[in-house]
Design a protein around this nucleic acid. Structure first.
Lengths: 182, 182
DNA sequence: ACTAACATGTAACCCGTTACATGATTAT
DNA sequence: ATAATCATGTAACGGGTTACATGTTAGT
């Protein structure tokens, strides 16, 4: 049931469409949860049926019409209950590390390419997160309580990409040595 | 299809039962992939049907009989193709960070408890990983190629829990301040 | 001409979780 | 007594992925 609550979390600050929420899942929400637009649209309809959200059609010209969702009081109560309830452990699915278990002199090249690709992605994420940090959280000591949690989540993301990038660089050095010998 | 290949990876070194593989998913494989025993048993049967594994019944006394699986040549080829194929991005699902977005003076207490629990779990993981490191990888420079990949995966896990623990500690300090004021 | 952004959706399928089930042995 | 370890499994349900579908406007 977590996706439901994360979508509602995305609607705390401002009302949004499914499309906008999907974009959030590519950026800010994206470093701790992934969801496709199909999942989001279908979940939004379920949440409205439960009375946790309301929706409003907005007609547009030159663009498709859109549906803007808003959190209800009932939804807010549900969110609070979720926060207080027990929290599931975080999970990771990382094919790359599994592939590394299979390292040999025939597949070093493929693995070097995969690690390089990961590093490039992480560098992009890092740039994005740092931009958000310098814009919205230049002085973390002065944050009001309602922004502190978001800041902590961002910080976690930044720290993770940082060591992720270091790890990629170190791994690439080690694997480059092997490839030379082969 | 990744679970299939990760199970086969688990059978590279030695033949194992579903039960033993499930335990690996609680420890070594566990920091980059999670799977329940139900998933593992059903996947093992599928893999045997595809001819990527073979199985052998081992009768035991005082314990339930067990089924030991072995990787076939066909399975090894399949594994190699998987390593060379394109790698999916790693994904994370982390409820705790989502809950932090909802931080307010009423739920600080719950969040402090959740972060404390996470830190305790990470400390346990850290102890386990460090034990594995000191036992099997005391001198990483002298590792043969077939152990280097596993070492790199372990290193990634160790680095992740390390900064994870630091992050928890910092977060707890910040949230403790808020709780005092409330 | 082609691609990206905008905006939403259906359908089929596979993956993953939860609950339930069995039954002996060993340790606290 | 109670719980943990060993060892495997079924069934129901819900979550998530992949493929397909539509149609305009703005930029290269």
């Amino acid at each position: 049931m977590a996706l439901a609550h994360i979508i509602m979390t995305g609607l705390l600050d401002k009302n949004q469409t499914g499309y906008e929420l999907a974009k959030s899942f590519d950026t800010s929400l994206g470093f701790f949860w992934q969801a496709s637009h199909q999942q989001i649209y279908s979940e939004l309809r379920k949440l409205e049926q439960k009375g946790w959200l309301t929706s409003e059609q907005v007609l547009q010209q030159g663009k498709p019409n859109k549906v803007v969702y808003e959190l209800t009081d009932k939804g807010q109560i549900e969110l609070e209950n979720w926060v207080d309830a027990s929290t599931k452990k975080s999970t990771t699915k990382d094919e790359l590390l599994a592939k590394l278990y299979n390292l040999n002199d025939k597949n070093v090249g493929s693995l070097i390419r995969a690690i390089t690709e990961r590093r490039d992605n992480m560098l992009k994420s890092q740039a994005l997160y740092e931009k958000i940090r310098s814009r919205n959280y230049p002085d973390p000591k002065k944050l009001p309580i309602n922004k502190l949690g978001v800041y902590l989540a961002l910080k976690s993301g930044i720290e993770n990409v940082e060591i992720g990038i270091c790890w990629c660089n170190e791994a690439l050095v080690l694997l480059a040595n092997i490839e030379e010998r082969a």
